[in-house]
Amino acid sequence: MLPKNNVFGEFVREKRLTLLETDKNYSLRKVAMRIQVEPSYLSKVERGEQPPPSEAKIVLLARDLGEDEDVLLALSGKVSSDIQDVIRKRPALFAQLIRDLKDMPDNAVLRIIREVRDGNW
C-alpha cells in the first residue's frame, strides 16, 4: 500500500541531492548500488510511487546518507524491530511513557535516555 503522503521519499531525495551538490557519489545510481537496490526502484521510492523499502534497506540508506536510522524508520511509518520487542514486553507502560514525553523539549527527553555511566579510573 502506498503512503498517504510522501514524507519519506521526499526526505530521502532532498538529503541525497544536498549531498550530491558536493559529492558525485550521491547520484541515484551510486546510492542504489551501495544499498543493493535497483536505481529505478529507489527513484520510485523517492517519488512516492513505491512504498518505503524494508527495515534493513532503510537502515542501510540511513547509514549511507548519514541520517539517524530511527528517524528514517519513523518517516517510513515503521518502528525498528528491536524497539517493537521492547514495547511488546511492557506495552501499557511504554505507550503511557511516549504520550507523556510527547510535548517535552528535546533536552528534557535526552536527560531520561539511559547513559553509560563513567566513573573513577
Partner: peptide, 26 residues
Amino acid sequence: ERGGVMLPMYQSEALLVRFGGGSPKT
C-alpha cells in the same frame, strides 16, 4: 566505581575495535 559496560571474551579469540556512525563521506 569505574562504571561503563562489560563484555565476555574467550582467550582463544581476538578483539578488534570498529568505528562507525555513517558512511565515510558523511
